[in-house]
């Protein structure tokens, strides 16, 4: 069944903010996205890590001690959930979070400068390399942050805060000019 993004009415495509040549950054909503929270059962940290490494067509992101977000853009949320439930039986607790979180991609030369207005995490490449995830707060909202490229990150927030968070993110991006894609 076709899913409706929480940001459908606010994340309008186009060019916004200051006009200083090329936009300083690009913002887009990653939707639809299947997300499952996977938490190791007691004593199964290592087994879970190994099991996660064998999964295909998914991204495995650190999301806390012995916790991971397993994401897929190609599998349906139900398919992902059932697959993980089966493969990780007795290894991990699996919870569907596909609808509970809204994921925003932010990229471009000013991406780090915008994120620095929100997170106390040092996003310097040596401190926060590509592939690393962190849990932090930005604009009073809990954020799961992942570096997906040199100047590219994803931010995932609780669905209910997503509109408010989007307003903050775009207002902080405006001085550099941004493109919503």
């Amino acid at each position: 069944m076709l899913r409706t993004s929480a940001l459908q009415s606010v994340a309008i495509q186009g060019r916004f903010g200051a006009d200083k040549g090329q936009p300083g950054l690009m913002l887009s909503v990653v939707h639809p996205l299947a997300i499952a929270m996977v938490i190791a059962r007691k004593g199964k940290s290592k087994v879970l890590k190994d099991a996660l490494a064998t999964l295909k067509s998914v991204n495995v992101l650190w999301a806390g001690p012995d916790q991971y977000y397993v994401q897929s853009t190609v599998k349906s949320e139900t398919a992902l959930y059932i697959e993980l439930k089966t493969k990780l039986a007795n290894i991990a607790s699996v919870t569907d979070q596909s609808h509970g979180r809204v994921t925003i991609r932010i990229s471009g030369p000013k991406a780090r400068a915008v994120l620095a207005k929100g997170t106390p995490i040092d996003l310097y490449t040596e401190e926060f390399p590509v592939g690393k995830s962190a849990l932090t707060q930005m604009a009073h909202v809990g954020v799961h942050l992942t570096r997906t490229g040199n100047d590219e990150f994803t931010l995932s927030v609780f669905r209910g805060f997503s509109e408010s968070f989007w307003e903050w993110l775009t207002s902080q991006s405006a001085e550099f000019g941004y493109q919503v894609g």
Binding site: P65, P120, I121, L135, T136, Q137
Partner: peptide
């Protein structure tokens, strides 16, 4: 788990 963070977190 997360590294050094300010007390507000």
């Amino acid at each position: 788990h997360c590294g050094t963070r300010p007390v507000e977190e």
